[in-house]
């Protein structure tokens, strides 16, 4: 068991899957000779060559479409989009093609692509590099959407995504690429479905995904110091949602906070609250509270940006509210 960085975990998954199956290729901007914006493919161009680590021009919609077409003929492309904001350019091939081809061909053609893209806010990148579009992808039938919160899932979910026959969107996070965590030395697959209880507790459930799990964990530490036992649930997959694990946790704690870095409207939190209302409404002892970004394009100014994006204290305040402590 070694402690490695998130980017190293992604790189290792690429390396193992490229070695395992010659049909696996990686495509994206600057991923080859330049080594990848977040180093996730560093050194692989030298190891596997230009035919398998494919540097693309800045043409997101069409290189995604080329990956999709290749997947229809047996390749397993891992497509990197440098920022989820740029994935908007690829929505036609991704949503109108990859997500629909299996269905509209009556199950006769599948598109086993993986699209990896960082989808969070970093530091003062301003509005066009800071969109968080998880809620858009999670509403699209025909896709799988996963959000690894640390190196283990970043590694093991990418490996599963490459093997899976469905199109999988992996939403990473600019602020997590250097985060470190333990990953087993032996080959490991992490499933693409299923929420995870990352900290067990009895008084309140804090639900997060991707980076917001870490806000929930930090809030849980502070709550513990106040004598409150918080359970932290990592959704892991936004499509499909693991309704059972959410229900079981809420039936145990009766109180819920949902923390998302995305905006609230038609968002992850609204979906999770709908799930809770449908699954276990009468288990609730208090109104659920959402922690979310301000409903504005993300500003450049440091103070404004901080005010727009939720932090651990916001999660703590929300927990105290559902606990009736404020």
């Amino acid at each position: 068991m070694a402690e490695i960085a998130y980017w190293e975990a992604i790189r290792r998954a690429h390396d193992e899957e490229l070695a395992h199956d010659r049909m696996v290729v990686a495509m994206g901007e600057d991923i080859g000779v330049a080594g990848g914006t977040y180093k996730a493919t560093s050194g692989l161009y030298q190891k596997y060559g230009a035919d398998r680590i494919i540097d693309t021009p800045i043409s997101e919609n069409s290189y995604t479409g080329i990956g999709i077409g290749a997947s229809m003929a047996g390749l397993r492309p891992i497509i990197e989009i440098m920022s989820i904001n740029f994935a908007l350019l690829a929505l036609d091939t991704l949503i109108n093609a990859a997500a629909k081809i299996r269905y509209m061909s009556g199950g006769r053609v599948s598109c086993p692509i993986v699209m990896r893209t960082p989808g969070g806010t970093a530091h003062q990148l301003a509005a066009q590099h800071s969109a968080r579009l998880a809620r858009m992808f999670m509403s699209t039938p025909g896709l799988r959407v996963v959000t690894p919160r640390g190196p283990l899932d970043a590694y093991g979910m990418l490996k599963s995504a490459v093997r899976c026959n469905d199109p999988v969107i992996i939403i990473e996070h600019e602020s997590m690429y250097n985060m470190r965590g333990e990953v087993p030395d032996e080959e490991t697959f992490r499933p693409l479905e299923g929420a995870e209880i990352v900290r067990a507790g009895t008084d309140v459930t804090l639900i997060g995904y991707n980076y917001s799990v870490h806000l929930c964990l930090a809030a849980a530490e502070k709550l513990a110091a106040m004598g409150v036992s918080a359970e932290v649930l990592d959704l892991r997959a936004l499509r499909p949602i693991d309704r059972d694990t959410i229900r079981r946790s809420v039936e145990k704690t009766h109180k819920v906070v949902i923390a998302e870095e995305d905006e609230a409207t038609v968002g992850v939190g609204s979906e999770i609250i709908s799930v809770i209302v449908e699954e276990c409404f009468f288990a609730l002892d208090a109104q659920p509270v959402r922690v979310h970004a301000a409903d504005v394009p993300v500003p450049y100014n440091r103070q404004l940006e901080k005010a727009a994006i939720p932090n651990a204290d916001d999660v703590l305040a929300a927990a105290l509210k559902v606990l009736g402590r404020v």
């Binding site: 061909s105 599948s110 899976c164 697959f189 929420a195």
Partner: peptide
Amino acid sequence: YCLDDQPDPRWIGPL
């Protein structure tokens, strides 16, 4: 036909 109707549980889960 929306997703693979017989997925391999090793890749899909749940946990």
